[in-house]
Amino acid sequence: MNAERQLSFACLLIAFGGLLLALQLDGDGALVGTGFAPLGIGAVVALAATLLAGARSNTLPRDALDVLSIASAFLGLSFLVAGVLAPGGSWLFFEVVVLLWLLTRRPLEQKASGPILAPSACAALAVMLLVRLWIAYQGSENRWQLMEISVPILSSIPLKLLDPIKTIELGSFDPTEMGLPITGMAFGPTLALWSSGFAAVAGGLMWRARAAYELENDRIHATIQTLPPALARLVERLLPEEEWKQLGLHGLSERLRCKKIEALIEKEMRSRREFENLLRRTPLLAPPGASEFAADIGNAIQGEPPADAR
Protein backbone atom coordinates (compact mmCIF):
# COMPACT_ATOMS: atom_id res chain seq x y z
CA MET A 1 0.00 0.00 0.00
CA ASN A 2 1.54 3.31 -1.00
CA ALA A 3 1.87 6.29 1.32
CA GLU A 4 -1.11 8.13 -0.16
CA ARG A 5 -3.47 5.24 0.40
CA GLN A 6 -2.08 4.71 3.89
CA LEU A 7 -2.68 8.37 4.65
CA SER A 8 -6.27 8.14 3.41
CA PHE A 9 -7.03 5.09 5.52
CA ALA A 10 -5.35 6.64 8.57
CA CYS A 11 -7.75 9.60 8.20
CA LEU A 12 -10.67 7.18 7.93
CA LEU A 13 -9.53 5.43 11.10
CA ILE A 14 -9.32 8.74 12.96
CA ALA A 15 -12.82 9.70 11.83
CA PHE A 16 -14.22 6.32 12.86
CA GLY A 17 -12.57 6.56 16.28
CA GLY A 18 -13.97 10.06 16.71
CA LEU A 19 -17.43 8.69 16.03
CA LEU A 20 -17.03 6.08 18.77
CA LEU A 21 -15.76 8.66 21.24
CA ALA A 22 -18.81 10.84 20.54
CA LEU A 23 -21.28 8.32 21.94
CA GLN A 24 -22.21 6.66 25.20
CA LEU A 25 -25.02 4.36 26.29
CA ASP A 26 -27.38 5.57 28.99
CA GLY A 27 -29.18 3.53 31.63
CA ASP A 28 -32.03 2.77 29.22
CA GLY A 29 -29.60 1.45 26.59
CA ALA A 30 -30.13 4.44 24.29
CA LEU A 31 -27.23 6.12 22.48
CA VAL A 32 -26.48 9.56 23.88
CA GLY A 33 -23.90 12.11 22.74
CA THR A 34 -20.95 12.96 24.98
CA GLY A 35 -21.53 16.69 24.58
CA PHE A 36 -19.93 19.61 22.81
CA ALA A 37 -18.19 21.18 25.81
CA PRO A 38 -15.38 18.59 26.03
CA LEU A 39 -14.91 18.83 22.26
CA GLY A 40 -14.53 22.60 22.59
CA ILE A 41 -11.77 22.20 25.16
CA GLY A 42 -10.16 19.48 23.06
CA ALA A 43 -10.24 21.79 20.03
CA VAL A 44 -8.47 24.53 21.98
CA VAL A 45 -5.72 22.14 23.07
CA ALA A 46 -5.42 20.75 19.52
CA LEU A 47 -5.27 24.28 18.10
CA ALA A 48 -2.40 25.15 20.42
CA ALA A 49 -0.61 21.95 19.42
CA THR A 50 -1.22 22.64 15.71
CA LEU A 51 -0.03 26.25 15.91
CA LEU A 52 3.11 25.29 17.76
CA ALA A 53 3.76 22.46 15.31
CA GLY A 54 3.41 24.92 12.44
CA ALA A 55 5.50 27.69 14.00
CA ARG A 56 8.67 28.48 12.03
CA SER A 57 7.54 25.99 9.42
CA ASN A 58 6.88 26.89 5.79
CA THR A 59 4.75 23.85 5.07
CA LEU A 60 1.30 24.27 3.60
CA PRO A 61 -1.27 21.75 2.44
CA ARG A 62 -0.63 21.29 -1.28
CA ASP A 63 -3.58 19.20 -2.40
CA ALA A 64 -6.85 17.67 -1.21
CA LEU A 65 -5.05 14.79 0.48
CA ASP A 66 -2.91 17.21 2.48
CA VAL A 67 -5.99 19.17 3.54
CA LEU A 68 -7.72 15.96 4.64
CA SER A 69 -4.59 14.86 6.47
CA ILE A 70 -4.16 18.07 8.45
CA ALA A 71 -7.87 18.38 9.18
CA SER A 72 -7.86 14.77 10.40
CA ALA A 73 -4.87 15.42 12.65
CA PHE A 74 -6.55 18.47 14.17
CA LEU A 75 -9.94 16.81 14.63
CA GLY A 76 -8.37 13.57 15.81
CA LEU A 77 -6.43 15.33 18.52
CA SER A 78 -9.56 17.26 19.52
CA PHE A 79 -11.53 14.00 19.79
CA LEU A 80 -8.75 12.34 21.74
CA VAL A 81 -8.41 15.15 24.27
CA ALA A 82 -12.21 15.44 24.57
CA GLY A 83 -12.39 11.69 25.13
CA VAL A 84 -10.00 11.62 28.06
CA LEU A 85 -10.85 14.88 29.83
CA ALA A 86 -13.08 14.78 32.83
CA PRO A 87 -15.86 17.06 31.52
CA GLY A 88 -15.90 19.28 34.59
CA GLY A 89 -14.50 19.86 38.04
CA SER A 90 -11.35 21.47 39.28
CA TRP A 91 -9.13 18.72 37.90
CA LEU A 92 -10.15 19.71 34.36
CA PHE A 93 -7.87 22.75 34.56
CA PHE A 94 -4.97 20.62 35.74
CA GLU A 95 -5.57 18.08 32.95
CA VAL A 96 -5.67 20.78 30.28
CA VAL A 97 -2.38 22.29 31.47
CA VAL A 98 -0.67 18.89 31.46
CA LEU A 99 -2.02 18.08 27.99
CA LEU A 100 -0.94 21.41 26.57
CA TRP A 101 2.56 20.86 27.88
CA LEU A 102 2.70 17.29 26.57
CA LEU A 103 1.33 18.02 23.14
CA THR A 104 3.27 21.18 22.40
CA ARG A 105 6.74 20.34 23.70
CA ARG A 106 8.81 19.18 20.74
CA PRO A 107 12.32 19.83 19.42
CA LEU A 108 12.44 22.47 16.68
CA GLU A 109 13.59 20.01 14.04
CA GLN A 110 10.39 18.00 14.50
CA LYS A 111 8.13 20.76 13.20
CA ALA A 112 5.67 19.05 10.94
CA SER A 113 2.47 19.52 9.01
CA GLY A 114 -0.20 19.06 11.64
CA PRO A 115 0.08 18.04 15.28
CA ILE A 116 1.95 14.85 16.05
CA LEU A 117 1.03 12.43 18.82
CA ALA A 118 4.29 11.45 20.50
CA PRO A 119 4.40 8.13 22.39
CA SER A 120 4.83 9.93 25.73
CA ALA A 121 1.76 12.08 25.07
CA CYS A 122 -0.17 8.99 24.00
CA ALA A 123 0.76 7.24 27.24
CA ALA A 124 -0.34 10.26 29.29
CA LEU A 125 -3.63 10.40 27.38
CA ALA A 126 -4.16 6.68 28.05
CA VAL A 127 -3.67 7.26 31.78
CA MET A 128 -6.18 10.12 31.67
CA LEU A 129 -8.61 7.86 29.83
CA LEU A 130 -8.29 5.29 32.62
CA VAL A 131 -9.08 7.97 35.21
CA ARG A 132 -12.08 9.08 33.20
CA LEU A 133 -13.29 5.50 32.84
CA TRP A 134 -12.94 4.99 36.58
CA ILE A 135 -14.98 8.12 37.26
CA ALA A 136 -17.59 6.98 34.75
CA TYR A 137 -17.70 3.57 36.43
CA GLN A 138 -18.22 5.14 39.84
CA GLY A 139 -20.95 7.34 38.39
CA SER A 140 -22.63 4.38 36.69
CA GLU A 141 -22.76 2.69 40.12
CA ASN A 142 -24.23 5.86 41.62
CA ARG A 143 -21.12 6.44 43.71
CA TRP A 144 -20.22 10.08 43.48
CA GLN A 145 -16.63 10.08 44.64
CA LEU A 146 -13.34 8.76 43.31
CA MET A 147 -12.99 6.45 46.28
CA GLU A 148 -14.29 5.84 49.78
CA ILE A 149 -11.96 4.77 52.55
CA SER A 150 -13.33 3.07 55.67
CA VAL A 151 -11.84 4.31 58.93
CA PRO A 152 -10.35 1.12 60.43
CA ILE A 153 -11.83 0.83 63.91
CA LEU A 154 -14.72 3.26 63.73
CA SER A 155 -16.29 1.55 60.72
CA SER A 156 -16.68 -1.71 62.66
CA ILE A 157 -18.66 -0.16 65.53
CA PRO A 158 -22.41 -0.73 64.97
CA LEU A 159 -23.51 2.73 66.09
CA LYS A 160 -25.57 4.90 63.76
CA LEU A 161 -24.23 7.94 65.56
CA LEU A 162 -20.82 7.28 64.05
CA ASP A 163 -22.05 6.89 60.45
CA PRO A 164 -20.82 10.31 59.26
CA ILE A 165 -17.25 9.62 60.38
CA LYS A 166 -17.00 5.93 59.51
CA THR A 167 -15.81 6.63 55.97
CA ILE A 168 -13.75 9.29 54.21
CA GLU A 169 -14.76 10.26 50.67
CA LEU A 170 -12.10 11.42 48.23
CA GLY A 171 -12.74 13.48 45.08
CA SER A 172 -16.49 13.89 45.13
CA PHE A 173 -18.36 14.91 41.98
CA ASP A 174 -21.91 15.00 40.71
CA PRO A 175 -23.64 13.64 37.59
CA THR A 176 -24.03 17.05 35.93
CA GLU A 177 -20.38 17.85 36.45
CA MET A 178 -19.37 14.58 34.83
CA GLY A 179 -21.77 14.90 31.90
CA LEU A 180 -23.48 11.62 32.71
CA PRO A 181 -26.87 10.99 31.11
CA ILE A 182 -29.83 11.66 33.38
CA THR A 183 -30.81 8.01 33.25
CA GLY A 184 -27.34 6.84 34.29
CA MET A 185 -24.76 5.07 32.19
CA ALA A 186 -24.46 1.53 30.88
CA PHE A 187 -20.80 1.25 31.74
CA GLY A 188 -19.84 -1.93 29.86
CA PRO A 189 -20.88 -0.88 26.34
CA THR A 190 -19.68 2.68 26.96
CA LEU A 191 -16.29 1.36 28.06
CA ALA A 192 -16.07 -0.65 24.84
CA LEU A 193 -17.04 2.39 22.74
CA TRP A 194 -14.57 4.75 24.38
CA SER A 195 -11.65 2.34 24.54
CA SER A 196 -12.08 1.34 20.90
CA GLY A 197 -12.48 4.98 19.91
CA PHE A 198 -9.36 5.98 21.79
CA ALA A 199 -7.35 3.16 20.23
CA ALA A 200 -8.63 4.01 16.74
CA VAL A 201 -7.91 7.73 17.02
CA ALA A 202 -4.50 7.32 18.68
CA GLY A 203 -3.50 4.62 16.21
CA GLY A 204 -4.83 6.69 13.32
CA LEU A 205 -2.89 9.77 14.42
CA MET A 206 0.37 7.85 14.63
CA TRP A 207 -0.30 6.12 11.32
CA ARG A 208 -1.16 9.46 9.71
CA ALA A 209 2.08 11.07 10.91
CA ARG A 210 4.14 8.20 9.53
CA ALA A 211 2.23 8.10 6.23
CA ALA A 212 2.49 11.90 5.84
CA TYR A 213 6.24 11.64 6.38
CA GLU A 214 6.50 8.90 3.74
CA LEU A 215 4.29 10.82 1.34
CA GLU A 216 6.51 13.89 1.54
CA ASN A 217 9.57 11.73 0.98
CA ASP A 218 7.84 10.12 -2.01
CA ARG A 219 7.14 13.54 -3.47
CA ILE A 220 10.78 14.62 -3.07
CA HIS A 221 11.91 11.32 -4.50
CA ALA A 222 9.59 11.78 -7.49
CA THR A 223 11.01 15.26 -8.08
CA ILE A 224 14.58 13.96 -7.96
CA GLN A 225 13.68 11.07 -10.24
CA THR A 226 12.73 13.52 -12.96
CA LEU A 227 16.48 14.04 -13.35
CA PRO A 228 18.49 11.68 -15.52
CA PRO A 229 19.13 8.43 -13.56
CA ALA A 230 22.83 9.00 -12.91
CA LEU A 231 22.28 12.53 -11.71
CA ALA A 232 19.29 11.50 -9.58
CA ARG A 233 21.44 8.86 -7.88
CA LEU A 234 24.09 11.47 -7.22
CA VAL A 235 21.60 13.95 -5.76
CA GLU A 236 20.14 11.30 -3.49
CA ARG A 237 23.66 10.46 -2.34
CA LEU A 238 24.43 14.09 -1.62
CA LEU A 239 21.09 14.59 0.13
CA PRO A 240 20.28 11.35 2.01
CA GLU A 241 16.57 10.59 2.41
CA GLU A 242 16.86 10.50 6.21
CA GLU A 243 17.80 14.18 6.21
CA TRP A 244 15.11 15.51 3.86
CA LYS A 245 12.80 16.56 6.65
CA GLN A 246 15.53 18.27 8.66
CA LEU A 247 16.75 20.01 5.49
CA GLY A 248 13.31 21.61 5.12
CA LEU A 249 12.25 19.77 1.99
CA HIS A 250 8.91 18.61 3.41
CA GLY A 251 5.71 20.48 2.65
CA LEU A 252 7.06 22.55 -0.25
CA SER A 253 5.41 23.17 -3.57
CA GLU A 254 6.97 21.59 -6.68
CA ARG A 255 8.68 24.83 -7.64
CA LEU A 256 9.97 25.59 -4.16
CA ARG A 257 11.14 22.02 -3.74
CA CYS A 258 13.21 22.20 -6.94
CA LYS A 259 14.74 25.51 -5.89
CA LYS A 260 15.48 24.17 -2.43
CA ILE A 261 17.16 21.06 -3.85
CA GLU A 262 19.23 23.24 -6.16
CA ALA A 263 20.29 25.45 -3.27
CA LEU A 264 21.16 22.48 -1.07
CA ILE A 265 23.19 20.81 -3.84
CA GLU A 266 25.01 24.04 -4.48
CA LYS A 267 25.80 24.45 -0.77
CA GLU A 268 26.89 20.85 -0.44
CA MET A 269 29.10 20.98 -3.50
CA ARG A 270 30.67 24.25 -2.44
CA SER A 271 31.54 22.75 0.89
CA ARG A 272 32.99 19.65 -0.75
CA ARG A 273 34.95 21.70 -3.27
CA GLU A 274 36.41 23.83 -0.49
CA PHE A 275 37.36 20.70 1.34
CA GLU A 276 38.91 19.23 -1.82
CA ASN A 277 41.00 22.37 -2.34
CA LEU A 278 42.07 22.34 1.25
CA LEU A 279 42.97 18.68 0.95
CA ARG A 280 45.13 19.35 -2.12
CA ARG A 281 47.03 22.14 -0.37
CA THR A 282 47.65 20.28 2.87
CA PRO A 283 50.82 18.12 3.14
CA LEU A 284 49.53 14.86 4.47
CA LEU A 285 52.82 13.14 5.17
CA ALA A 286 53.83 13.65 8.77
CA PRO A 287 57.22 15.42 9.12
CA PRO A 288 60.10 13.33 10.44
CA GLY A 289 60.04 13.11 14.20
CA ALA A 290 56.30 13.78 14.42
CA SER A 291 54.32 11.94 17.02
CA GLU A 292 52.67 8.65 16.31
CA PHE A 293 49.25 10.32 16.58
CA ALA A 294 50.11 12.80 13.78
CA ALA A 295 51.33 9.95 11.58
CA ASP A 296 48.14 7.99 12.18
CA ILE A 297 45.93 10.96 11.33
CA GLY A 298 47.91 11.53 8.12
CA ASN A 299 47.49 7.89 7.18
CA ALA A 300 43.79 7.98 7.98
CA ILE A 301 43.24 10.96 5.67
CA GLN A 302 45.12 9.17 2.90
CA GLY A 303 43.02 6.09 3.48
CA GLU A 304 45.88 3.93 4.79
CA PRO A 305 45.67 1.82 7.93
CA PRO A 306 47.36 3.12 11.10
CA ALA A 307 51.03 2.24 11.64
CA ASP A 308 50.49 -0.35 14.40
CA ALA A 309 47.90 -2.22 12.32
CA ARG A 310 50.41 -2.81 9.50
Binding site: S8, C11, L12, F16, A22, D28, A30, F36, S72
Partner: peptide, 29 residues
Protein backbone atom coordinates in the same frame (compact mmCIF):
# COMPACT_ATOMS: atom_id res chain seq x y z
CA UNK B 1 -8.79 0.54 -6.62
CA UNK B 2 -10.23 2.87 -3.97
CA UNK B 3 -10.77 6.34 -5.44
CA UNK B 4 -9.47 9.09 -3.21
CA UNK B 5 -12.72 11.03 -3.62
CA UNK B 6 -14.65 8.14 -2.10
CA UNK B 7 -12.28 7.75 0.86
CA UNK B 8 -12.27 11.50 1.47
CA UNK B 9 -16.06 11.66 1.28
CA UNK B 10 -16.51 8.81 3.74
CA UNK B 11 -13.96 10.35 6.12
CA UNK B 12 -15.65 13.76 5.88
CA UNK B 13 -19.06 12.21 6.54
CA UNK B 14 -17.67 10.35 9.57
CA UNK B 15 -16.09 13.53 10.91
CA UNK B 16 -19.36 15.43 10.56
CA UNK B 17 -21.24 12.59 12.25
CA UNK B 18 -18.64 12.45 15.05
CA UNK B 19 -19.23 16.13 15.78
CA UNK B 20 -23.00 16.24 15.36
CA UNK B 21 -23.69 13.04 17.31
CA UNK B 22 -22.11 14.64 20.38
CA UNK B 23 -25.32 16.63 20.70
CA UNK B 24 -27.52 13.53 20.62
CA UNK B 25 -30.04 13.73 23.47
CA UNK B 26 -31.45 10.76 25.32
CA UNK B 27 -35.08 10.04 24.47
CA UNK B 28 -37.31 11.62 27.09
CA UNK B 29 -38.83 9.19 29.52
Amino acid sequence: AVPFALVASVAAALFVAAILLRGLEAPVR
